[in-house]
Amino acid sequence: MTALSLRDVRKSFGPTEIIRGITLDIAAGERHCIIGPNGAGKTTCFNLISGRFPITSGEILLNGERIDTLPPHKINRKGLSRSFQITSIFHRMSVFENLRCALLWSRGYRYSFWSPLWRQKGLNEAAEALLEELNLASRRDVLAGLLSYAEQRALEIGMTIAGGASVVLLDEPTAGMSNTETDYAMTLIRRVTEGKTLLMVEHDMKVVFDLADAITVMVYGQVIASGPPAAVRANRAVQEAYLGALEG
């Protein structure tokens, strides 16, 4: 069963084609990592899938349904959620409020201006449980903007998975972290994406080969290889373009 599928997706900014025809299938429940040098178009690819930018041509399907013409919030409601490379949270709201907001839509509250939040027992318990899971319970009432960097990254992941999306896109979740923090973040990611389809952009090769069921290598807006880690590692083109230089 294919969860997410890209069919010859292209994207141009002005006369420059940044994404030059990507075709990719991601199976349901798969942990899929995208790697590639800077400027390869990994983040742009995420922006196209999540609806942040419209695509120029091609098709994107989520569980067999086209999503490339939908605005971001509708894509999210269909069960695709993403995080950002540069932390994107509600910085003037408490950690708890951030998580509760991220839970609202999936729990059917919509734009309600008549249900008092303090009385929504199920919602509040879910937010507290999430807080525990992210190990942020002691920071519950701190403004999100005042958290440490690693804590903000954890919150970002929490907000991404809160709505119960079946397909989760994480954009460099461990960027800028120390080794210990990275290990911790990866344990967290493994745990919270259990049973979900995960698509992740990552630079840390150790993390990638530890985690991924499948790897896609992008260079200059194109996929040069895609498959199980062992096959990708053995791929000559990948070694020349990318891995060889890194693993030296």
Binding site: R52, H73, N76, S88, E97, C101, L104, T160, A162
Partner: peptide, 15 residues
């Protein structure tokens, strides 16, 4: 409050 703090993020939690 959320759209005040981060207009874009609100879209990616379904609003």
């Amino acid at each position: 409050n959320a759209t005040r703090d981060n207009f874009e993020r609100a879209q990616f939690i379904g609003y």
